[in-house]
Design a protein around this nucleic acid. Structure first.
Lengths: 226, 226
DNA sequence: TGTACATCAGTGAACGCGCGTTCACTGATGTAC
DNA sequence: TGTACATCAGTGAACGCGCGTTCACTGATGTAC
């Protein structure tokens, strides 16, 4: 988006900002959201705490940045995968995009939790994350929509209306409510398994979540459209 | 389990302990896990921080207590529901138990997150919670198992073996792996929707998660056994 | 190319805060004779 | 029933810690003439 950094000083600023964010992610991975502390990050970078205030207005601004970056990163990954598999059949697309989503989450679980986990206490995510989240999930929801046959019924219930309104707000071209519901179902099923996995629930059970995940994707693909 | 409190002093101790835990849950609801602080709880109770050390060895012991209580409470609720609906058909049982699970989670979302949410940073849940979690989920998994027809195939893959081993460890009588998988699927689908709901993801979308949840229960009931 | 000045990254001291936890104590409550 | 003693809930001071954030400063880097 932005043009390349202009002056050397600007370039330097950007480097430092990025390093701070990288270190913040390390802290997040090691100590959870509470570990993202201005002083701790600065110490790791070999500078003093107050120096960081040259780069971020305050701790919340830094946190917001991390979240925005993570959504963008996930969004990039999902769009790249959509692009890579664009010629495949809808079912195959769902498999690929689902796998990509899970892979992204497992590569950096702490980041996944930052986006979809328990809200960081005392931190109110800004409105803009709604749009970002939508971008990250859209390719998969589109692939699910492609599974649908023609001739599905239009709006019938109040719930259907909510779905349609939501879809309109995000600027989607009209789709039957059942399709939208299936999209949310896909998201929720993936999230259920991934969050249990990322939180370590399967470790104690000594069960590999991967086949479970694949089965959930198949269940989305195979589920009849009544 | 335990006999009634013996002396007046013991009774008093138990009262204070319970009040501390009640206040801790209030703090949890208001400020997240980080809000569960010895000093803050004591202040709310109108005593000083150190006084609480008469009742809990340290902060972690208090947290552990909260988790154990919550698992037991959920376990009680699920077993009571299983008892109440014991004469119904399997599908109806799954509906009732699923609804009970969600209701419990929504009644006290912070407690649900304490059990199934992002692990509290720096806090290692003791082994015993595994057994407690199992008790809480068992009635529902049993109901799902009751849905299964006879003659399902036995162990075939390495994954099947993991499922069987897990089920054996929890002391269950033999069941086909597909059935065990279906049970985990039910758990994961419920958790996916509930955790998204509890974290407020549906608020911004203005979509009511309740029909989605009911649809997920139906999907568990209707899913073919291949 | 050389000097004068403006910019700005980073420092170190300081602020008030809340945290978990220990310790020696006071004073009320319960127990034994 | 009355006294002597033991138990134990709760206090208040203190510990060291890390937090976010401000402020006046130093000194290096970049810019303009």
């Amino acid at each position: 988006m932005d043009a390349a950094p202009r002056s050397p000083r600007e370039r330097f600023r950007e480097q430092t900002r990025n390093e701070a964010k990288r270190v913040a992610l390390d802290q997040l991975a090691e100590s959870g959201p509470a570990g993202i502390s201005v002083n701790a990050i600065a110490k790791r970078m070999g500078i003093t705490g107050p120096a960081l205030y040259r780069y971020f207005e305050n701790r919340d601004a830094l946190l917001t940045d991390l979240i925005v970056d993570a959504f963008n990163d996930l969004g990039d990954a999902m769009e790249a995968a959509a692009q890579a598999h664009r010629r495949k059949a809808p079912a195959a697309k769902v498999r690929e995009l689902g796998a990509r989503f899970r892979a992204w989450a497992l590569e950096q679980p702490h980041r996944y939790l930052l986006l979809f986990g328990t809200p960081v206490p005392g931190f109110r995510a800004p409105e803009l994350t709604i749009g970002l989240a939508d971008r990250a999930l859209r390719p998969l929801l589109d692939a699910v929509a492609d599974l649908a046959p023609d001739g599905l019924p239009a709006e019938r219930t109040a719930f259907d209306r909510q779905l349609t309104a939501w879809h309109e707000r995000r600027g989607g071209s009209p789709l039957p409510p059942v399709v939208l519901q299936r999209g949310l179902q896909a998201w929720s099923r993936m999230h259920g398994l991934i969050s249990l996995e990322v939180e370590g629930q399967f470790v104690g059970m000594r069960v590999d979540p991967e086949p479970l995940f694949r089965a959930e994707l198949e269940s989305i693909i195979d589920q009849p459209w009544q």
